[in-house]
Amino acid sequence: MNTSQSSLDGFLKNSRPIEPVSTSQEIRDRGSTFVANIFHATTPEAAKAKVDYLRNVTHSSKRATHEIAAWRCMVLKGGRTGLDGPDDFELKNGFSDDGEQWAGSKILKTMESLAILDAVVIVSRWYGGIMLGPVRFSHIETCASEVCRAFKKSEELKEAITMLSTLDDILNQLRFELASLSSDGKKASSADGPSKKPDYSSWTPDDLPKAKRVIAAREKAIVTVKKMIAKRREG
Rank of each mutant, 00 (worst) to 15 (best):
A64E: 10
A64I: 13
T65I: 05
H66P: 12
H66K: 14
H66E: 12
E67L: 13
E67P: 12
I68C: 08
I68F: 12
A69Y: 13
A69I: 14
A70K: 06
W71Q: 05
W71L: 08
R72N: 07
R72L: 08
C73P: 11
M74V: 15
M74H: 14
V75A: 10
V75N: 05
V75G: 13
V75R: 07
K77C: 02
K77Q: 03
K77G: 10
K77P: 02
K77Y: 04
G78A: 12
G79H: 01
R80W: 13
T81C: 13
G82V: 11
G82W: 06
G82F: 12
G82L: 08
D84P: 04
G85H: 03
G85M: 02
G85L: 03
P86D: 11
P86I: 10
P86Y: 09
D87R: 07
D87I: 06
D88V: 09
F89T: 06
F89P: 05
E90A: 10
E90Q: 15
L91Q: 04
L91A: 08
L91S: 08
K92E: 14
K92P: 07
G94H: 05
F95H: 11
F95I: 03
S96G: 13
D97C: 00
D97V: 00
D98A: 14
D98W: 15
G99Y: 04
E100F: 12
E100T: 03
E100L: 13
W102E: 01
W102N: 06
W102K: 03
A103V: 09
A103N: 02
S105L: 11
S105M: 06
S105D: 02
K106N: 07
K106V: 06
L108A: 10
K109V: 00
T110F: 01
T110M: 07
M111G: 04
M111D: 02
E112D: 09
E112W: 01
E112P: 01
E112S: 05
E112Q: 12
E112I: 02
S113H: 00
S113F: 00
S113R: 02
L114W: 04
L114G: 03
L114M: 02
A115I: 00
I116C: 05
I116G: 01
L117E: 11
L117N: 11
D118A: 01
D118T: 04
A119T: 02
A119Q: 08
A119N: 09
V120E: 10
V121F: 08
V121Q: 10
V121H: 08
V121G: 06
I122G: 11
I122F: 11
I122Q: 10
V123A: 12
R125N: 15
R125C: 15
W126K: 02
W126C: 03
W126H: 08
Y127Q: 07
Y127V: 15
G128F: 04
G128R: 03
G128Q: 03
G128C: 05
I130R: 04
L132V: 05
P134F: 02
P134S: 09
V135I: 15
R136I: 10
R136V: 11
F137H: 03
S138C: 00
H139A: 12
E141K: 13
E141D: 09
E141C: 12
E141S: 14
T142V: 01
T142L: 03
T142H: 01
C143W: 09
C143I: 08
A144Q: 07
A144D: 14
A144R: 12
S145Q: 10
E146A: 11
E146Q: 09
C148A: 07
C148L: 01
C148Q: 00
C148W: 00
C148R: 00
